[in-house]
């Protein structure tokens, strides 16, 4: 099963067939999600319209974490079974994950300014997302740090697994650190009993972000495979 999809040519064929559908699905979900988020869902009685930032903020936070998990799984697949596509998938996913963390951080501070009165708080959650962002940057930098792309991919795979083991430790340390130093002055209601009118756009946007991730991942993986083929052709032409 695993090795049925190990053939890059077969993967490219399947990806080419899936892409139009996933791209259309992404578009439809985004249109529906944004429509519900901006027009159908009510403004919050306390936060007003700023609550709508949540419909972008929360899905990208989900995706930022899911994407790192995806990279870790791909890295393990690459190291254990030497699956040729796993490295490409991990390399393709890392910048997407970094992008999601940037969206979380920027939308978070845009929401924080009117609501908390400050762009940034050294809150445990914010800090751990910031650390996650740097883990992504380290992964991307290590992938591209070698003349031999294979070596970069393998090193990045080991790093992703080390990071994956460390994320819970970092998360728990940061939680402890913040509660130890100062009592949380700006606690955020974590998951209030959310109104269905707000839940619908949130879930729609979550699905839209996921479909977007799949679409971009397929595009990036195909581009990567094609670039490798172009390089090989150039080399054989030069000989």
């Amino acid at each position: 099963m695993l090795h049925r999809f190990a053939n890059p040519a077969r993967f490219s064929r399947i990806a080419a067939r899936v892409l139009p559908w996933s791209a259309t699905l992404t578009g439809l979900l985004f249109v529906a999600g944004i429509y519900f988020a901006l027009f159908v869902s009510p403004a919050d009685y306390q936060q007003g319209d700023t609550v709508r930032i949540m419909y972008v903020h929360v899905p990208s936070a989900w995706m930022a974490m899911a994407c790192y998990t995806f990279i870790a799984v791909m890295s393990a697949t690459s190291l254990i079974w030497k699956h040729p596509l796993a490295d490409i998938a991990a390399r393709a996913a890392a910048p997407l994950g970094a992008g999601f963390t940037i969206i979380v951080l920027t939308t978070g501070s845009l929401w924080g300014k009117p609501t908390w009165g400050t762009w940034w708080v050294w809150d445990a959650r914010l800090t751990s997302v910031l650390v996650l962002f740097f883990l992504y940057l380290g992964h991307i930098a290590l992938t591209h740090a070698f003349d031999n792309p294979q070596r970069g991919a393998k090193a990045a795979a080991v790093l992703a697994l080390v990071g994956f083991v460390n994320i819970p430790i970092i998360k728990f340390s940061v939680d402890w650190w913040n509660t130890l130093h100062q009592p949380a002055s700006l606690t955020r209601l974590d998951r209030p009993a959310i109104d269905p009118a707000m839940l619908t756009p949130l879930l729609l946007m979550g699905l839209a972000f996921m479909a977007y991730f799949v679409t971009m991942l397929l595009i990036r993986m195909r581009a990567d495979l094609n670039a490798a083929r172009a390089r090989a052709l150039q080399l054989s032409a030069a000989e």
Binding site: A141, L159, V162, G163, I170, V174, W177
Partner: peptide, 15 residues
């Protein structure tokens, strides 16, 4: 690169 990779992992010890 080494600093970029390691400093995030060192945060728990620092805390």
């Amino acid at each position: 690169l080494l600093a970029l990779l390691l400093l995030p992992l060192y945060i728990p010890v620092l805390i």
